[in-house]
Design a protein around this nucleic acid. Sequence first.
DNA 1: CTGACAGAAAGATCATACTTTTGGCAACAG
DNA 2: CTGTTGCCAAAAGTATGATCTTTCTGTCAG
Lengths: 257, 257
Amino acid sequence: MHGVEQHSGVLDRLGESIASGARAPGTVLTLAALEEEFGVSRTLVREVVRVLESMGMVESRRRVGVTVRPERDWNPFDPRVIRWRLGGPGRDEQLRSLTELRAAIEPVAARLAAGRADGSTRRRLVELAARLRELGEARRGTDPEYLEVDTAYHALLLEASGNPMLAALQDVVAEVLSGRTALGLMPRSPAPGALEDHEATAAAVAAGDAAEAEARARSVVTEVLEGVVEGTDRRDERGDGPTERAAVTGSGTGPVP
Amino acid sequence: MHGVEQHSGVLDRLGESIASGARAPGTVLTLAALEEEFGVSRTLVREVVRVLESMGMVESRRRVGVTVRPERDWNPFDPRVIRWRLGGPGRDEQLRSLTELRAAIEPVAARLAAGRADGSTRRRLVELAARLRELGEARRGTDPEYLEVDTAYHALLLEASGNPMLAALQDVVAEVLSGRTALGLMPRSPAPGALEDHEATAAAVAAGDAAEAEARARSVVTEVLEGVVEGTDRRDERGDGPTERAAVTGSGTGPVP
DNA sequence: CTGACAGAAAGATCATACTTTTGGCAACAG
DNA sequence: CTGTTGCCAAAAGTATGATCTTTCTGTCAG
């Protein structure tokens, strides 16, 4: 019962229980209690708490204990935070954030890739886009293979941007894509326009045409964005939202209220 | 010599020394050695290492020690990583990444803000843009106040997007703006077009015109992006180029080493 | 040359003791 | 009655020493 890497296990359990809301912001824990709860030593608990603290999820103060911090303080880019949120009640909200982020990122990534990608990358990108069209036209939009190729395509685009921060979002995009498929939001036959835009983006990148690459990539992503925004900005009729912006439904679907 | 919060101190020193390259990737450390070097206990060192590990900067393995991981594994969104990089030799490169990221983010943030911001936010945004124009027309583009207002404007825009991930990038944008000023890249008289675009963005957000907000925000950011890209690209004669992307050195003036 | 085995190195975990900070409360002075 | 001071205990912060586990390395027999 010993040396198995318990650290990650406890971290995961505790982090998830916070992300899930089981331990709401404001809740105070004590090291002793956690020690007890997870059946591990103080050392272990401390290390875990330190990591959680480094993610902004808890705050540790003398004489008080370990306090769960409000959600807006969590580092929303930490892969674990993302994972925990995707696994809990915040799933939809998280997916929306990621989708919007992706929509923001990809056009610029395409533009940069057009100026920076190396030869073999340009070639692979074109290949993937072509393969994607084949699968799409064969009405295999819901196939695992479609998802796979789609993911590879977008990942490669980000990688080719030559920007480490954009490249680091590959997992995020993969998550969005697979999430969309999992939720059954993918049609068997993707819109012909979308397939075309994918190919055109790849072609523009290959040709080094930055402006065109950006424009086509934006086209790929814009409808997605509009869909998401519509989907969410609609249900805030019930202006119940406390000032918290975590609830995200801004408040004004319309112009100045 | 005891209970002073040493954790953050050691974390900072160690992290910085890694980010600065003083401890290159591949370097192996041992807990014992670190314990010795920083004059703290194992407990402390372990906690620090665990946090560094959670950022992807080091890897801890039995019988081997603590290995510094290659830079591409570091979490580029961790605020500390960003800070350490900005303080070291990677400064230009980091600033370039951030600038590109910012360019990607802002237009989408503007679009979302147009649909979600609340009344007072819309108003404040317009005010800030107006103030910005005043300062700009008074040839005070290098004033601390200009930077301050500019920062507030962009921060508010991100906040208003209602997307926690975009909102979390406020500090990043602030860093980019202040970096630009610090490097003397700001003219005393900002381009009239830029000022106009700021105002138009704010107005569009206030009016709830998503498409216009996005377009104007993109206009604000596009020239910046083109500037950066021109400065760095130049070697893409096609051919190959190893997967390396770390080189690139931004700065815009110096030719590729 | 291959595989099994022994030994050692280094992290992983635990248990415990001591230090420092700090919130709360009670006593006290105004 | 109110505000200030000072003490106490709680809880995190830090330090050590001991033990457990994993895994690398070398070696020796087959």
